[in-house]
């Protein structure tokens, strides 16, 4: 009898097990389907969001070449790089001397002129024309513009004064005018970016 009972029980248990197995397998399928749908949605979202990044033609223009042969000492030009203004300034020997000699102690963002220019070309100061405070374009590059108390650049938005090496001397801006990556292709042509 006992054997029969056990066999019966075993059969019932087995049947239960099959049922449970079935239930679990079904759940697994639903979970898998929903997970796949989620992964698919993410896989579609990626290119859609990626399309917002800089397009190939914009990236292709990320470096420019500028002819600087016409900039006399003491003058500066404003050009555009990556849709932002860039100041290229030809410092006079006097300015180079003073800027190199300036004491770093008083500066908010201490940097020597040599650190901000290329060796042997210390008279060529290339900076972004974007005030490091809130992004206005400082004055001082064009002839006749206010150059601020330190003879470099002056930002009219909130009164930041930069010296001839584009270093922040006074006002709210936290850092010096940024120096983009640049190099001399020849004595008269520089490549920015």
């Amino acid at each position: 009898m006992a054997t029969v009972d056990t066999a019966k029980d075993a059969a019932v248990l087995a049947a239960h097990a099959v049922e449970e197995e079935g239930v679990r397998r079904r759940d697994f399928i639903h979970v898998a389907t929903i997970s796949f749908a989620g992964v698919g949605a993410a896989a579609v979202a990626l290119p859609l969001l990626g399309s917002l990044s800089a397009s190939a033609d914009v990236v292709a223009l990320s470096s420019i070449e500028v002819d600087i042969s016409k900039i006399e000492p003491g003058q500066a030009i404003k050009t555009s790089w990556r849709k932002q203004p860039v100041f290229i300034r030809n410092l006079t020997p006097q300015e180079v001397k003073e800027a190199s000699a300036a004491s770093l102690d008083a500066m908010r963002d201490p940097q020597t002129l040599a650190e901000r220019t290329l060796p042997g070309k210390e008279n060529w100061l290339v900076t972004l024309g974007v005030c490091t405070h809130l992004g206005c374009v400082p004055l001082g590059a064009a002839a006749g513009e206010v150059k601020g108390e330190f003879g470099g650049y002056f930002c009219p938005c909130h009164g930041s004064h930069y010296d001839t090496a584009g270093r922040i001397m006074k006002g709210p801006a936290p850092t010096n005018l940024a120096v983009p990556e640049f190099s001399f292709l020849s004595d008269t042509i520089i490549k920015i970016g």
């Binding site: 290119p47 859609l48 990626g50 399309s51 990044s53 397009s55 190939a56 033609d57 914009v58």
Partner: peptide
């Protein structure tokens, strides 16, 4: 054509 050529995944969209 700019979308097709330069925008990332633009051809797909």
């Amino acid at each position: 054509e700019h979308i097709m050529r330069n925008v990332e995944a633009g051809w797909f969209i």
